[in-house]
Amino acid sequence: MPLATDSEPFIEFDHVSKQRGEFRFALADVSFAVARGEFVLLTGASGSGKSTVLQLIAAIEQPSSGRVRVGGEDLARLKPRALPLLRRSIGILPQELTLLGDRSVLANVMLPALAAGLSAHEAEHRARAALARVGLDGAAGGVAGGMHAGAIGVAPLRPRELSGGQKQRAVLARAIVNRPALVLADEPTAHLDPQAASDLLLLLDEFTQAGVTVVMASHGEAAALPAHARVLGLVDGKIQP
C-alpha cells in the first residue's frame, strides 16, 4: 500500500453508500477524512453503520457507490492480489474474538507475521514484542496504566485459559504484530470491565502517538477516551454534524 503524504488524508470516504437489500442503506452518502495518526471514534446505535465503515476500510466489503481511499489507494481499483498486502498494513480487532483455540496465544499472534512471509524466528520475536507491548508478557513494558498489573507470561497458554480482557489484548497484539499503519477496532471494549476498557483505550492512544491511525467503533461514548480523539456520530447510516 503506498503511503500517503502527511498533507493527504490517510482515510477518505467520498460520498460512500452501502446498500443492503432494495431499500435499506447501511451507509448513505457518507463523506469524511481521517489524518495519519488520528484517533477517530465512530459512535452510534447498533445498525447505525459503524461496522460497515470499518469493513469498507479493510476492503472486507465494497461500497455500493462512492469512493474509499486508504493511504492514497482507491480500494475499488485494488487488484485481488493486492488485498492481502492491504490487510497486512491494517491491524484489525474484530467485533467477535477471533483467537484460534487449537494453538497457543503466541502462535495466534505470530500468524500475521508468518502470513507476511517473515521467518519463524522473526515472527516469534515480533509476536513476543507485541505481547509485551499489550502487557501480556512480563518480558517487556511500555504499556500504560494498569496493564502492567496483568503482565504475565501467557504466550504458551491456549486462548481459553485467558480472561476476556487478556483475550482482547491478545487480539490487539495480533493486530499490531505486522506494525500496521492503521488499527481498526470494532467494539473492542464491549466485553471488558471499565478498568480493562480504559487500559485498552490508553494503549490504542499510545499507538496514535507513534503515528498509527486508529479508527474505533463503539455503540456508546467510550470511557477514558483520549482528549484528542475525534468523535464521528452515525445515525441510520449518516454522519451527524
Partner: peptide, 16 residues
C-alpha cells in the same frame, strides 16, 4: 472456517 476467516483478516494470501 474460523481459521480461514482469521487468515484472510490478517492478510494471508490464497497460497498461504
Amino acid at each position: 472456517i474460523d481459521e480461514i476467516r482469521v487468515l484472510r483478516l490478517v492478510g494471508a494470501d490464497v497460497a498461504f
